[in-house]
């Protein structure tokens, strides 16, 4: 894809996102989007960022991490901290304030970058010692680190401690959530279809052979871990400044990490479209089952768990397996299968 075409695609994408954002915030003519649905759509966007980023380390590199909520917390608190304590100053630089469109449009990306960097740093600190471990041991260590991060935040009064970070200004909107979700998908898809993605897959398949083929396995594991953590930090920064969902250490414990794991396992571990699908399903399902709960209290979680158990029995590889959903599925098979295109995002 040439540079001009890339720029054009990005411009078209941004215009569409901005247009949708306008509809989300202010409606279109008489049409108003129900706030409840709008909130679910926004939560799906954040879940997509989380699931797709976790897929990089868990699905592609095959290193089972259970600490994603921890990195989300680091990113979320750092980003929100920037906005709460320095937001007005930053917005003041262009003569605006946090409540205005221009001001928040400047503060939001800055806070997200800070969140990403903080989470990446935490990922590096956690990743370097723990990625020497494999399988269950790595899962336990990352779980432990996630909890350590949470307990540390719990004891910082400046960010609300156990009450949560509540005095925030909600500047996250549909535009930021979905541009970050799409950015995450692009980053992970491009890494996967590159030589770095193949190196990570090789580590997943056989570490000894990967080393023998000249791949510095530790370095690439840490690299994937850091990128994954940074993107989780972005998701944290988005959700921390979404009014409906203020930061609270209780919501960022290991249950949250497991929820993200369930998303990628459900969609098919290693599949990006699978992760998107899983993120949407796991976000919608508990809401959709609320009606059931009204009639039979407590049934919601029973059905939710049953669905997951049935899925694991009948389709343990997840709904999509390692495959990617693509429009080609609906087309008739050509006489000869085309060779995989360079930079293509389909698993062959």
């Amino acid at each position: 894809m040439s540079l001009t075409r890339k720029v054009i695609y990005i411009a078209i994408g941004l215009v569409i996102l901005l247009g949708l954002n306008q509809v989300f915030e202010h409606g279109l003519g008489d049409f108003q989007i129900n706030g409840y649905y709008a909130r679910i759509v926004n939560l799906i966007g954040i879940a997509i960022t989380l699931a797709v980023s976790l897929n990089l380390i868990n699905g592609l590199a095959g290193q089972f991490s259970l600490g994603h909520a921890g990195f989300m917390a680091v990113g979320g608190y750092s980003a929100t901290y920037v906005t709460v304590f320095h937001g007005q100053q930053i917005a003041g630089l262009i003569g605006s304030s946090l409540g205005e469109v221009a001001g928040s449009a400047l503060v939001m990306p800055i806070s997200l970058v800070v969140g990403a960097i903080a989470a990446a740093a935490a990922g590096l600190v956690v990743g370097v010692p723990s990625l020497r471990l494999k399988g269950d041991y790595l899962a336990i260590v990352t779980l432990g680190f996630g909890e350590i991060i949470r307990v540390i935040i719990l004891n910082i009064p400046a960010v609300g401690g156990a009450t949560g970070f509540t005095n925030t200004t909600p500047i996250t909107n549909f535009f930021w959530i979905f541009s970050m979700a799409i950015l995450t998908i692009i980053i992970v898809a491009n890494i996967r279809s590159s030589t770095f993605g193949r190196a990570l897959s090789a580590i997943r398949e056989d570490e000894i052979a990967a080393e023998a083929m000249g791949i510095n396995t530790t370095r690439y594991k840490v690299m994937a871990f850091v990128i994954s953590a940074a993107l989780a930090g972005v998701a944290g920064g988005l959700s921390g400044q979404l009014f409906a969902n203020p930061l609270n250490p209780q919501n960022l414990n290991f249950v949250k990490s497991i929820e993200v794991i369930v998303m990628i396992v459900l969609g098919g571990i290693g599949s990006i479209t699978g992760a998107v699908f899983g993120a949407a399903t796991i976000t919608i399902l508990p809401e959709a089952l609320r009606d059931v709960d009204r009639q039979f209290p407590g049934m919601r979680m029973v059905i939710y768990s049953l669905l997951l158990i049935l899925l694991m029995i009948f389709r343990p590889q997840g709904l999509l397996g390692r495959k990617e959903f693509s429009l080609d599925w609906f087309r008739r098979k050509k006489a000869a299968p085309a060779p995989p295109a360079a930079g293509g995002d389909t698993d062959v």
């Binding site: 193949r198 997943r204 398949e205 000249g214």
Partner: peptide
């Protein structure tokens, strides 16, 4: 044999060129 099992024949060889 230690091939990268879940990768294609072509990807196996391309992976080794990473270095």
């Amino acid at each position: 044999i230690r091939l990268f099992a879940d990768m294609t024949v072509l990807e196996n060889v391309m992976t080794a060129h990473h270095i």
